[in-house]
């Protein structure tokens, strides 16, 4: 039995009883943790703080090696992202971020890069201007894919490692994991035609952070192209369509 203090983002909430919740947390130090929050549904919850989706909090967890669920003994909200809550566009991007992170995070396997990508993504959605939401989400996705070990090859051919010529037609292979040059199209007949500029944009977003990211304005065509390629890629990697993806296209 151990008491552990860490920082976490709430990814999922499930009603457990009249007064308790089961919570899936992405923690900074412990990976994904599933925990019970006793009394969290009361009008006056223990500790005085209400648990909610996508809040960032300091948590104290009681963990027993024999129990499947940890117990939350203290929960102090650091940030509940009020701007995200007040905009459908920001909120839907945040839900998408949540689903991606929940999909790749593993119980009790810390991933600092994944946690950092999630926090940077939420901070960007909270503080960035409305015009940069698409760029902020795509930058998060690039960092998320890198942290999860799924980042596709975006600049060279994933098969022959060659830089395509400037005017060369290129493709994107979800199966092979990235850009496919015209000479290698036969390697994956299921490849999608792709725009090289869009792939380079996604790669560049990896190194843009904070306020600089808030100044990025992407053409609608580039966003649509990357959305199309990434949605197909996620479907291949996770072997299912993400539930929240359609909310990015239709507001709700």
């Amino acid at each position: 039995m151990s008491l552990e203090k860490t920082e976490a983002v709430v990814l999922r909430l499930f009603e457990f009883s009249e007064t308790s919740l089961v919570v899936h947390l992405l923690t900074r130090d412990l990976g994904r943790v599933h925990a019970i929050a006793k009394g969290a549904r009361r009008a006056k919850p223990r500790g005085g703080e209400y648990l909610d989706l996508l809040v960032r909090a300091e948590v104290v967890l009681l963990r027993r090696s024999t129990a499947a669920l940890a117990t939350i003994t203290d929960f102090a909200v650091r940030e509940n992202y009020p701007t995200i809550r007040s905009s459908t566009q920001r909120l839907n991007a945040a839900y998408f971020l949540d689903e991606l992170v929940h999909e790749v995070s593993r119980e009790n396997e810390p991933n600092e890069l994944l946690y950092a990508a999630a926090i940077e993504g939420l901070e960007g959605l909270e503080h960035g201007p409305a015009e940069s939401i698409a760029a902020t989400l795509l930058a998060f996705e690039a960092r998320f894919l890198a942290a999860a070990g799924y980042l596709p090859e975006l600049r060279r051919c994933v098969r022959c490692r060659r830089d395509p010529a400037p005017a060369e037609r290129i493709g994107f292979s979800s199966r092979l994991g990235g850009l496919l040059c015209s000479r290698c199209f036969a390697e994956d007949p299921g490849f999608q035609a792709a725009d090289r500029g869009a792939l380079i944009t996604l790669s560049s977003l990896l190194s843009i952070h904070g306020e600089a990211l808030g100044r990025v304005r992407l053409p609608a065509r580039t966003v649509a192209e990357l959305r199309r390629l990434l949605d197909g890629y996620y479907e291949f990697v996770f072997e299912r369509r993400l539930r929240t993806a359609r909310f990015l296209r239709n507001d709700a």
Partner: peptide, 13 residues
């Protein structure tokens, strides 16, 4: 909460 607030924002629009 997050989902209730999101629903309210959507309805308000």
């Amino acid at each position: 909460d997050l989902e209730g607030d999101g629903t309210a924002v959507f309805l308000a629009e």
